[in-house]
């Protein structure tokens, strides 16, 4: 998709930035485009324990023919090229899933990525502590201490993680990744730390759908919290009580 390849436009991120500026968060760096950062300005302590970042996905605005979020994520983090890997070995930070209710015939299409659980099973099982949850709720793999045991992939109910099956070259500067470690959606931490929002959110808006809303779940006044109160969205496998940070409206 053409509009996805171009960097998210400045106006696309406007409201988030101003809202965060109001909160007094000085920007650590000026992000010109994904991965392109001017190293200037003061340091910011970004992972804020008073926040919990999450997503609300409006599946009624999502379409099975569209994969703008997937394409944009692949370009942002440099995982679109599967190289020699078979399809079932290919990197998969986010995927589009089609759901059909056999009883009613109703269908829905939605992206599934790391659900950024409050009680993430991957973190519990990781032997080295490489899987961890940041203070602001983002679940990550510290790939400096990941030994590639893949137990987290066994434990994740969402199949959100993938293993890097072969040597990687040409990584994006802002998103290092390499063979033998496990990776997943990182909610675009680099962008979030710079006051931005995940690239999938912008790509979805760029595709004219605006089905993904990003924001602070712990702030009752945030747009995402208000919408969640309004539409009472569902969460995938809520019965497992993992308190996921990704909500789905309309399923």
């Amino acid at each position: 998709m053409k509009d996805v390849k171009t960097p998210p436009s400045a106006e696309g991120r406007g409201d988030t930035v101003s809202r965060r500026s109001l909160l007094g968060a000085a920007l650590a760096a000026v992000t010109l485009a994904p991965g392109i950062t001017l190293y200037a300005g003061p340091a910011a302590a970004a992972a804020d324990g008073a926040k919990r970042w999450g997503l609300l996905i409006d599946t009624t605005r999502c379409d099975s023919g569209c994969s703008a979020c997937v394409t944009a994520c692949g370009a942002e983090h440099g995982w679109s090229d599967a190289g020699r890997a078979r399809p079932d070995q290919a990197p998969q930070w986010v995927r589009k899933v089609d759901v059909r209710d056999p009883a009613t015939g109703r269908t829905a299409s939605l992206p599934i990525m790391c659900q950024h659980c409050a009680k993430p099973p991957c973190v519990d099982v990781c032997p080295t502590g490489a899987s961890f949850k940041r203070a602001d709720g983002i679940v990550l793999v510290d790939r400096h201490i990941c030994i590639g045991c893949r137990y987290c992939m066994m434990a994740c109910p969402y199949k959100a993680r993938s293993f890097v099956h072969e040597p990687v070259t040409g990584q994006r500067p802002g998103s290092p990744r390499g063979m033998g470690t496990v990776e997943a959606c990182n909610l675009c931490v680099t962008r979030v730390d710079a006051g931005g929002r995940p690239v999938c959110v912008d790509a979805c808006a760029g595709a004219g759908r605006s089905a993904i809303l990003f924001g602070d779940l712990d702030d009752p006044g945030s747009a995402i919290s208000r919408r969640i109160r309004e539409v009472a969205p569902a969460r995938i496998r809520d019965d497992l009580r993992l308190d996921t940070g990704v909500y789905y409206q309309g399923i």
Partner: peptide, 20 residues
């Protein structure tokens, strides 16, 4: 393992919640 060279990491970093 994906990174057998990091065996020392497995010996020095313990997550005591992990059965592994």
């Amino acid at each position: 393992l994906g990174r057998p060279d990091r065996l020392t990491v497995a010996m020095t970093h313990f997550n005591f919640r992990s059965i592994f």
